[in-house]
């Protein structure tokens, strides 16, 4: 073998070794990235954060948002945490977002990982509050709690109270908190404020919090409204196989008993 050939062979084998080694490293990093790319449900991104996939390509992990948050409620992920290293997050239960009017965190972001087009904090969607446990929520037990309702910054819109009869006592009302995704920003104030040892209301990422009815579904009443009238008009007269004494009235659309034992006038019944 000539000197050049030896050198050439050495070069080739060195290059192959290097490429193989680096590829191995790459596969390791790639696999690791896979495990680091899904955000645990209790970890929330700052306001305006892009969808998690996009966020992980956009956030350069500088911490400027953390620095400009006046409430110091944002943190950067550490390698041992289940959030991509160096990316900002917050935990609703410990320190929720105070929904600053001027959104300093978004303004601070040098890349737009926190979307600069977010100018009204009410439009942010950090997650969605869900009353996850109706068995322990004090309001569902019939106690007057409603702390989550009281603290919600989107007052009376993101959480409303629904009155319902309290069957247990028979005499009282339940005041049930109900979250509306059209308004809830996922700030986490309600989860933080929940008085229970473990909150009954929690902020979940939308992917977990929201159902989806399916694109092929049509809701009759909505379609009717859109069309400005019944879509199956004229309503066809139906044939029913009804038990004796029961009639189907096409005009009023009801199914009634022909000869009710009760007179139309309730007094008659009482006087019987």
């Amino acid at each position: 073998m000539t000197k050049e050939e030896k050198a050439r062979r050495k070069f080739i084998s060195d290059t192959i070794k290097t490429v193989c080694g680096v590829s191995l490293l790459g596969m390791g990093a790639g696999l690791y990235s896979n495990s680091a790319s899904s955000l645990p449900a209790d970890i929330l991104r700052p306001p305006g954060a892009l969808k998690e996939n996009d966020f992980l390509s956009a956030c350069i992990r500088c911490g400027l948002c953390v620095r400009d948050c006046p409430y110091n409620m944002l943190f950067l992920g550490k390698p041992e945490q289940k959030v991509a290293t160096g990316t900002p997050y917050f935990i609703a239960r410990t320190k929720p977002c105070e929904m600053c009017d001027d959104i300093p965190c978004v303004k601070a972001c040098p890349t737009g990982a926190l979307d600069h087009s977010l100018t009204n904090i009410d439009d942010s969607r950090m997650g969605l509050a869900v009353l996850v446990d109706q068995e322990t929520c004090l309001a569902f037990l019939g106690l007057r709690c409603e702390v989550c309702y009281q603290v919600c910054p989107i007052a009376d819109k993101a959480i409303t109270l629904e009155k319902q009869h309290n069957i247990r006592s028979g005499r009282h009302s339940l005041f049930l908190p109900r979250v509306h995704s059209d308004y809830c920003t996922g700030c986490g104030k309600c989860e933080q404020a929940c008085v229970m040892a473990e909150p009954a209301i929690k902020i979940l990422p939308h992917r977990l919090a929201k159902g989806h009815i399916g694109d092929h579904y049509r809701l009759g009443w909505q379609e009717k409204e859109k069309a400005g009238g019944s879509l199956v008009s004229p309503d066809a007269k139906r044939e029913y196989n009804l038990p004796e004494g029961v009639v189907y009235d096409y005009e009023t659309g009801g199914v009634t008993e022909k000869d009710s034992p009760f007179s139309k006038n309730p007094m008659d019944t009482l006087n019987k």
Partner: peptide
């Protein structure tokens, strides 16, 4: 390939500096 900034998950350079400043 992964659609994310992968190297920053393991980069000791930024990790150390960020660590010293942010924990």
């Amino acid at each position: 390939i992964t659609g994310m900034i992968v190297w920053e998950l393991v980069n000791p350079v930024t990790m150390l500096f960020r660590g010293l400043v942010f924990g």
